[in-house]
Design a protein around this nucleic acid. Sequence first.
DNA 1: CACGGCATGATACGGGTGTACCAGGAGAGA
DNA 2: TCTCTCCTGGTACACCCGTATCATGCCGTG
Lengths: 201, 201
Amino acid sequence: MTVRVDHEERRRQIAEALLRIADTQGLQSASMRAVAAEAGVSLRLVQYYFTTKQALLLDALARLGTQLQARMESWIRAAGSPPTPRSIVTAILSSILPTDPESRRITRTYAAYYTLVLNDPELVGKHGTSQPDLLEGFLAKQLRAAQQAGEIAPDRDPEMTAAGLLAMVNGLGSSVLGYQRTGEAALAILNHHLDELFRSP
Amino acid sequence: MTVRVDHEERRRQIAEALLRIADTQGLQSASMRAVAAEAGVSLRLVQYYFTTKQALLLDALARLGTQLQARMESWIRAAGSPPTPRSIVTAILSSILPTDPESRRITRTYAAYYTLVLNDPELVGKHGTSQPDLLEGFLAKQLRAAQQAGEIAPDRDPEMTAAGLLAMVNGLGSSVLGYQRTGEAALAILNHHLDELFRSP
DNA sequence: CACGGCATGATACGGGTGTACCAGGAGAGA
DNA sequence: TCTCTCCTGGTACACCCGTATCATGCCGTG
């Protein structure tokens, strides 16, 4: 029953080669041949495990999402015990900011995919509700909890605040990747706004 | 002394064809041939007026910047007379949000250029301090004025707030372009945060 | 032992890309 | 009128792309 080689392992190896190229040279440089070379396999093998390029791109994107989720969960775990709503919110938002090599890599690659999707919407569209919406809801839930604990003014709208914070972090990330700001500066801006948000009314 | 054809007019015609393609099909579809066809001229002419593709890209980007600036100034003018700091800030931020065809076009095209620059930093790097920084400073100045007028709590840091707002609008724009939110929803989120910011302490 | 399917390699095909080259017409200055 | 510079067209070149095709090992199963 066991196949000769581990398909999943090969697919992972190839998909991660794609992500590596997307990070360092951009997605437009991630040709089938380049991915094959980066993964150390022949072009034919890339075709074999991912029939088409779009399939490869989608698979790699899914893996990237998994990586980001793992990173966020790790940061939440490291946020302190017991976790408070504020520490969770801070952990989530900071983990997205490109402040270290791993987050830089993830953010850069996401940005590359973003532009790809902009001009080919149905490439990724069928997934229905996208991850950002789920994250936004989770964040809003934490904000509401903090609100009930009296850490946030009661007249703040949790949904709007969550959406705004997420958008801000996204924009800050863009500016960091665009060399307009350092990761530390972006983090300082984020923390300033969190301090402003979390102060007893 | 006058040349036979108006060089500047031809260059504008070609560069705007590039921007039109970048908006509708993405920058990667803006090949020399496609731009020539869109502008209704021969490939040779595109080469003649812009020797290389990079020159064409840079010229078009400069024009895009001019268009955005004109839009912002127009919105500030329309913000009401006399303009208050709050109306100016609101006008600037709303004018960036992709809520109508023109702003959608500008934002989309900027996003396309952004990804291009990500993997070729020195393409646009020599321009020194970039426009966003200037805008951030201007915004901060308006916030400080509002602060002195008592419309904003005095313990807010104008620079940090300006940077945060700008990043938030940028992120909101991304989500609108990515079909995660409508332009109206993004505007509502922005206004909610502005209401929160501009309330007498 | 034979055989059928999985896994791999080499290479071909049609098309698109940026750029370079060659040629010619048209109007201005001598 | 001659000439020279500006402007324009057509086309060729070398390269890269995604995909398809043909061939050939190897291994488990009958």
